[in-house]
Design a protein around this nucleic acid. Structure first.
Lengths: 193, 193
DNA sequence: AAATGGCATTGATCTAAATCAATTTTATTT
DNA sequence: AAATAAAATTGATTTAGATCAATGCCATTT
């Protein structure tokens, strides 16, 4: 149940077996079925969820009722509404399982305590954030300055897992395109080669 | 010369006077004039720059030669190409002063050493990153799902300093709009009230 | 003060992607 | 396996914003 977490932490910092055992005690294991939600828009996000198994998505809903996917999460990734989680504000995102998933939940206070008891965990969290920040900056640039086709091609090149495990209309939403446009973009690409 | 830095750190963590004095020794002060660059696309980004005074922007240049502004930096903010700074890869951004500016530069190795000697500084860096990440996520959502007018109105509501101190065509670039479109959007807004 | 070059504005036209609508294909549920 | 629902495709039309082009406006520099 803690394989992915051990792997993720081990890639960033070195922990002894005892330290990792201590670490484990701060998490709450939870299984969640496809289409179930971990967080509903408007609620307070009490958990940062590490994904041991499965796929989740976080999304906003606009005035017209359209869903806009902000992030996907796969094995070895974290998902949360960071703003709500850290400040206790009402969440603007809904987090939902795309597949049956196994999660390890960490409350904000458990996380604070863990970072104090285990400085390496704070370092791990910072390193994760750095990578996430770099990825988001690339995505901003893509969102603002690329055509529909460029966005899709870059996604297929960099995030094979998204294409493989996420329904096409959700990929469209993630890229800020309509399902129709993504379908046509794919058609164009397939015709050309 | 270190007022803004003291303020920025003080908002996140508590340092003794001696600790802050130690901290200061890791930084290299540098003045940079308007239109001068701190980093050129293709070079390796050797510094994380804290802005004591002034305004900077970081931007990419696409195949057609168009500039796309990724970030502005004001007093009390940090600017760098995080990816290049951390990994040593060639930078994809250019960082340039919009006004004459005063910077405090921190090399990657100085930063590492400072985080080891002063764990509070690692905490400070993580807290900064958390806020930056939250802000970027909001921006992604805006970039993908809002109209030109909505983007502009939200920017004016949240980032008065950008509107006040940055030329309009750079604001347009930051929002992913052409200068013409931003001009028309502003016209529409002014006509309505 | 005149001159130069970068900015902002305004108009006309074009285009990528959205919207609306219908059909086919693929998944779920019973 | 049949029925139902959800997803993807395809076509016709609309539209927000880009592009192209011209003019006026400041702000530096001389």
């Amino acid at each position: 149940m803690y394989e992915q977490l051990a792997k993720s932490i081990g890639e960033k910092v070195a922990l002894t077996t005892e330290e990792f055992e201590l670490c484990k005690t701060f998490f709450i294991p939870k299984k969640i079925r496809k289409k179930q939600t971990l967080l509903l828009e408007g609620d307070i996000c009490t958990y940062n969820a590490f994904i041991e198994k499965g796929v989740l998505r976080s999304y906003t809903i606009d005035d017209k009722g359209n869903e806009h996917i902000v992030q996907f999460g796969f094995e070895g990734w974290w998902v949360t509404d960071l703003s709500s989680y850290l400040t206790g504000a009402n969440s603007i995102y809904t987090i939902e399982a795309i597949e049956d998933s196994e999660l390890l939940l960490l409350t904000a206070s458990a996380r604070e305590e863990l970072m104090i008891q285990l400085p390496a965990f704070e370092r791990y969290q910072r390193l994760l954030l750095q990578n996430a920040y770099i990825a988001l900056q690339t995505r901003i640039n893509s969102a603002l300055n690329e055509t529909a086709e460029e966005k899709y091609l870059k996604l297929t090149a960099s995030y094979t897992n998204i294409i493989a495990r996420v329904p096409q209309h959700m990929v469209a939403s993630y890229l800020g395109l309509t399902p129709e446009t993504l379908s046509r973009v794919r058609k164009q690409i397939s015709l050309r080669k």
